[in-house]
Every structure is written in C-alpha cells, then in structure tokens.
Simulated scan of single mutants.
Amino acid sequence: MTSLPQRWARAERLDAARTVDALHARTGVRLTLDGPCPGGQVGAAYVRWPDHHRSVLKWRPHSRVADMEAGPLAVTEVLRLGGYPAPATELTAQVGHAVVLVQELLPGTKIERLDHRGLDQALALNRSQADRLADHPDIPAVKLFLREDGPGYCLHEPLRRHDRRSAALEHWIADVGAEYPAHLAGQDAVHMDFHPGNILATGGSVTGVVDWDGAARGDRRFDLITLRFGIHAMNTDPSVTQRLDAVLDSLPEDVLRPIWAHMSLRMVDWAIRHFTPADVEQWLDLAGQRVK
C-alpha cells in the first residue's frame, strides 16, 4: 500500500543532496547524507548530525510548516507525551514550496507480514489513540473527500471513466458522501496511513509507528480500516485477515461506511492512475466486499 507522502514523491522525487544543502542554507545545520531509506521511499533518506547520530530526512512538497505544525506534528507530539512510539521531530524548515523534516530514527524494521502477534499490538496501539486530542480541538479533522476530489488523491473522475464496475463504486461513494459529514467526527488521534509498512518491529515486538505526515483528529477506527486495506495486497495469513474483518464487522455503520468509502476511493483511484488493470481489479474486489 502506498502512503500519501510516497504518492507525492513519485511525482516529485526527493533530491536528498540538494535538500541537505538547502536545509543548511536555511537553518545553518549541516547534515551528512547517509543513503536512501529502504522500501522505495523516494521521499526519505538517512542523514547524520554533527554529533554522528542518525535521523531520517523527509520532504513533503507543496506544504507549509505552519500547517504541519498545527496538524500532523501536533498529533505526534501529543501521542509521544503519552508514551506512544512515534518519532520525535528534530528539525523543521520551509524550503521553497516544500516542508523538510528531520525526524528521530526509531529502532526496528517495517513489518513484511502481519501475524497474530503483530495484529494484537496494532490493535493495542490503536486503542491507545482514543481521546488523545480531546484537549486539542484546533487540530484539523480528517476530511473524507466523498463529495469532492482530494489534493492529488481520492479523485472521482478516474473511477467514473475507467469501467462500469469502478463507475458503480464511485456512484456508491457519492451516495455515502451525501449521507455523512465531509469531516470525520471524533477526538482521537488518527494516523491516516496505518499499515504494516509504517509499523516497525524487532523480534516480533513493535518498536514504532512512522510516517505521520497526514495525521489528523477524528475516529481512531479509521486506522483499522486502513490496516485492512494495507494487508490486502500482502501475504497475510487468512486467519489474521479474518480476525481483523471481525473487528470491522463490530463497528457501527456510521463509522464503517464512510471510512470504507474513503479508502475504496483512495486505493481504486490510485490504482487506475498508476498501476495495472489487475491491480485495479484487486482493489475493486476488496472495496466491493462492503458496498451496500
């Protein structure tokens, strides 16, 4: 599953060397480039500080520092203060149209295959996100984009034009959008891209959750539905998928339905524009499991 920062990065790749130089010119801090992050994350690279500790350099194009600080960075700071394993942000700067972040390098490697132990830990982390933003009503709420296009993702027209099946899905998504508010209610911390590739672990124990660039306020159960989409294209034990499906089955309709519509739009649109027809069919198959 592709994260939102990665999606932007495919259109505008990070030139890490130039970004390090620009960051030095902007802040006076000289970092040393230490190679790209693994896993195809062309929007992230490893860097070293003058004291030699390693961090992660991230580049988010077409963004403003003020928006990042009021939204995603505020969410992670609240969570970190409560012991949640999210990375600290060590440096933030506006470089042209982009926000450059230098964040703590957490231990562990991304989860390649979610097992029952990993699911247990993911569910526990998700529960710990409940009500964490109750004292932070100014943090922007999750926007679902069921009635209008998102900023470079969640586009409706590709579904309308691709084929009859995708057009029927878009019609259902629009109908769901007409029934529910444009923003997700709630005061939980929401990661927005909570899938195994953003969960780090060592020896089966989760050590961190990364890539909070889209984090917002809303209903934490959004992340469980994202996780379900995230494991769809992975080699996941069917019993793990069944367990997560059972969790989703227990969600209220007014929670599950609009979020499922959002994720269906998000993944099918992106597959139509960037992947193969077989990929599109794969996401349509998953989306259709809960269209009603």
Rank of each mutant, 00 (worst) to 15 (best):
R273F: 00
A45E: 07
R164C: 04
A130M: 01
A22R: 06
E77F: 08
R161S: 07
G214A: 10
L256K: 07
L105K: 14
H52D: 15
R10E: 06
Y46C: 01
K143R: 12
M267E: 14
V210D: 12
V280M: 02
M1W: 08
E148M: 03
P151L: 00
A98K: 04
G39R: 03
V99C: 02
T207A: 10
M267H: 15
A185H: 05
I259T: 09
S55V: 01
P277N: 04
Y153L: 10
L33F: 12
P252G: 10
P140E: 07
L91P: 07
Q6H: 10
H136R: 15
A233P: 00
R228F: 15
L73T: 03
D285V: 06
K292H: 13
T19A: 00
P181C: 03
M1A: 14
N198V: 09
Q187Y: 07
G177S: 03
L81Y: 14
F145L: 05
P158I: 01
D135H: 11
L14N: 04
D21F: 03
F145K: 08
G82Q: 12
D163K: 10
D285M: 01
D163Y: 03
G214Y: 01
E69N: 07
H97K: 03
E179L: 13
T236E: 15
L125W: 04
D254F: 13
A141C: 12
D237H: 13
Q242I: 11
Y180F: 15
K292V: 10
L73E: 08
H156R: 07
D213L: 03
W59H: 14
G108D: 12
D188H: 06
A168R: 15
A9K: 05
I199K: 10
V29P: 04
P258H: 12
